[in-house]
Structures are given as C-alpha cells and as structure tokens.
Amino acid sequence: MDFRQLEYFLAIVDHGGFNRAAAALYVSQPSLSQAIQVLERDLDSILFHRVGGKAVLTDAGAALVPPAREALHGLELARASVGAVRELRAGRLDIAAMASPTVEPLSTMVRRFTDRHPAVSLALRVALTAADVVERVRTGGCELGLLTTSLPLSSPDVATHPVGDHRLVLVTPKDGPFPAGRAVRREQLEGHRLIVGQRGTGIRSYVDGLAAQGIDIRIAVETEHRMAFLPLVLGGVGLAVVTESWADLSERAGALVLDLEPPALQHNVLVSRKTRLTPSARAFLAIALDTAAPAGP
C-alpha cells in the first residue's frame, strides 16, 4: 500500500466514481483502476461495488476511509512542515462551513487571510448542520470548520474556538405584517407562515422552540438551500428567521429586517482537529480569532 493508492481511493470516494476521479486527478481511468486493484489485493478485500457506472463502498471500503484520510493528512502535514509551505508561499486549506456564517464572519476571515497569504488556496466546503461540520473535521475531510449553534458546543473529537455571536432577526416583505423599526415579539409570530431550514441548524432550533412554547407557527417551506430564503420571502411565500449576517443583503434586496424580542443569539464556532495543524490552518485560526476579538477602548 502506498500514498498514491490511498489518494486514488479517496478521490473515487469523493467524486463518486472512477471516471470522475480519474478526470480530477488527471490520470487515465485504466491506470486508476489498476492502482485500486493492487490496493484491493494488498488488503485482500473488495473496496467498491461497481453499480451502473458508480462506485459504491463496500463495508471494507467504508472502514478504510478514516485511516486513509488520516494517512494523507499526516503526509500533507509532513510536507507542510518544510519548504515553501512552512512560509505559506504555497499550500491549500479545506474549510467546512454552514450557510449562515459563510456570509459573516467567514467572508471577513477569508479576505484577511488571502490578503496576508495570497499564495495559499482555500477550498470552502458546504456543510448543512453543525454535526456535519464536526464530522468533516473529525474524519480529516477538512482541517477547519465553521458552524453556528444555539447552545455551547462541546465535542471530544475536535477543538472548539468561539468566534463571536450573531442575533437572530426576522426577514419579511416590505409590505409584510409588521411595521418597520419595531421589534417583533415571539408570540406575534402566531399563525404566520415561516420558511425554515432543516433540523440540526440553530435557526431551525429557534423555530421549533416557538412551537414547543405553544406558539402556533406554520412551516411554509423547509429547505436545505439557505440562499432560497430571501427569494421566497420576497415572493410572499412566508417570513424567515435568519442570523443578522444576512441583514444587509436582505435590505439591499428590498426586504424588511426586524429585531426579535426577546433577543436570541447564535454562537459562531470554529472547530479544528486536536492533532497538530498545518501552517496554513494555524495561520487561518490565528486570523479568525483576531477577527472575532472585541475592539479595544
């Protein structure tokens, strides 16, 4: 078994098939297949079922994914510890992020990082829930992850770094049911149709909490696509509770943004692996913590 075989194996996992993996790796499909066959012989196990042009992991293949990522992460760490990457004159950093903090604070963090280290390439990976972010970091798919949560996050598998809070706000059409400039009490949402995200997000937890308190809210649309919230609100489908990071974009699009009473907070948390980080991940983490630090007097 060698690192090239593991790289090929994970490329097939990540791209869902041999042809797409070969294209992404710029190798021929026969060469890729041959490398996997050698790996399967070394392990005395079939790693993939070939189903209609797709590669489906066997139980043995699924068991190989975490250690394979760990091995390649270790190799990347070794390479990153010497030469140009040590000085951040090259390299790549994968970050998993939920939708809400992608607007802010991630945009500011990325801008500051790329201003300081323009030679390092960033790859931002979509994660739908906080659990998805933690899992991607825990298994080595990404070195860092940014999530929002309504409750303090504690995980034995990752290190957590609070990077600020955001209030929740209500987004409505300009001609919506509530006047501008006045906070909306939670009980005033009684009977209104809401656009919500999937379970496992902090925003959805807030809406589910309203229902648990006996407030009769109606779910008009449940969607994993956070960018769909604003068009649906402007189209009159319903109202949406979002983090204040979306306020500026919503107002510029013609929506009304209102405070909620009592205020509700979402905590932004950057997570990292507990093992040693590559230089690019350490640099990004330092910039992220500095970005989140309160300004001095």
Rank of each mutant, 00 (worst) to 15 (best):
A21F: 00
R92L: 13
L10Q: 08
A80K: 05
P162S: 06
A97Y: 05
A78T: 15
L277F: 03
L6V: 07
E104N: 11
L25V: 05
D115C: 11
R226M: 15
D44V: 09
S31A: 15
E224P: 15
Q34E: 13
P297R: 14
E190K: 13
A71H: 12
D165M: 09
D157N: 11
L147C: 06
S280V: 07
G145W: 09
R20Q: 14
L239I: 07
L72C: 02
R69W: 10
L260I: 09
V269E: 11
G238Q: 01
R185A: 14
A180S: 07
Y8K: 09
S121A: 14
G191I: 02
R193S: 11
V134W: 08
N19W: 02
Q5G: 08
G176T: 05
R226F: 15
R41F: 00
R20E: 15
I12S: 01
R41T: 03
V241G: 07
P67N: 00
D132K: 06
A211I: 00
V126R: 15
E190W: 10
V233R: 08
E222R: 05
A35P: 05
L289W: 02
A60F: 10
A253W: 04
E187Y: 09
T129N: 02
H73P: 03
A159Q: 14
A228R: 12
D14T: 09
T243D: 06
G181I: 01
A63E: 13
E135D: 15
L249A: 12
R186M: 14
L6H: 08
A228H: 10
P67Q: 01
V56W: 13
V237C: 02
S81R: 15
L285F: 11
V184W: 07
L230P: 05
P101G: 10
H166D: 14
A80D: 09
L146H: 00
I195S: 03
V120W: 03
P177G: 04
T160D: 00
S272C: 06
V38D: 09
M227D: 15
S45L: 07
P263Q: 08
F3K: 13
P294D: 03
L210V: 08
R218N: 06
P294R: 01
V196C: 10
A68P: 14
